[in-house]
């Protein structure tokens, strides 16, 4: 069975230094501990800079002894991430997973993956080929995708806005708060309630 107390600890720990780490974790729909949503900010100095990337996280019943299943919701142009469905090719999410790793360390690893692609072990062959053959073009595409999909008007963001608006908050305020919390629904909700 899923170790719920560990997941709860991880949620608290994962959001402790969101400002500096650029990583946050939240429940996806408020009740289900096995379905979470993570966000990472694009690392500075990469084509992903300025973007906020949403990652869908599903915890198998064997978690933390089995790795969490992670997938990019935000579309991203990267050799190790499928441009079609956001599937990730990263060893610690597969055979190199250890129960002493956490969702936060996994998200930080994803952030590191954005900084340091491994085109020799690609998930998306098209992207990897472009990365190796025409790096400049790769950077251009990746940046364009970041602008298009990972900035505040992204699909993930729209969903969150819609959800909070449905709770009865004015859309302008919701967008402003979500912007400030870098898309973290729970924190945004807290701010909206307190403000």
């Amino acid at each position: 069975m899923l170790d719920t107390s560990r997941v709860q600890k991880e949620l608290a720990e994962g959001n402790r230094d969101t400002e500096t780490s650029g990583v946050s974790i939240a429940l996806h729909d408020g009740a289900d501990l096995t379905h979470l949503s993570g966000t990472i900010t694009g690392p500075v100095g990469t084509p992903y800079e300025g973007g906020v990337f949403v990652i869908d996280i599903r915890l198998p019943s064997g978690y933390p002894f089995e790795p969490p299943k992670m997938q990019f919701v935000t579309r991203v142009w990267h050799p190790n991430i499928s441009s079609q469905n956001g599937a990730i090719c990263l060893d610690i999410l597969k055979d190199q997973w250890s129960p002493a790793l956490t969702l936060k360390t996994a998200l930080l690893s994803l952030q590191a993956l954005l900084s340091a692609p491994a085109p020799d072990d690609p998930q998306d062959a098209v992207v990897a080929q472009q990365y190796l053959r025409d790096y400049q073009k790769f950077v251009g595409t990746a940046r364009h995708w970041t602008e298009t999909f990972a900035k505040s008007a992204s699909v993930g963001m729209d969903e969150k806005v819609k959800k909070l608006v449905e709770m009865g908050f004015p859309e302008d305020a919701v967008r402003a708060v979500l912007e400030a919390t870098k898309g973290d629904e729970n924190m945004a909700l807290e701010k909206l309630c307190s403000g």
Partner: peptide, 20 residues
């Protein structure tokens, strides 16, 4: 940790400390 490794297959023969 040990139980998961064993049910995962013969890889459990090369089990290492959980600390990454």
């Amino acid at each position: 940790y040990v139980g998961t490794a064993i049910s995962d297959g013969p890889g459990c023969l090369m089990l290492r400390c959980p600390d990454p």
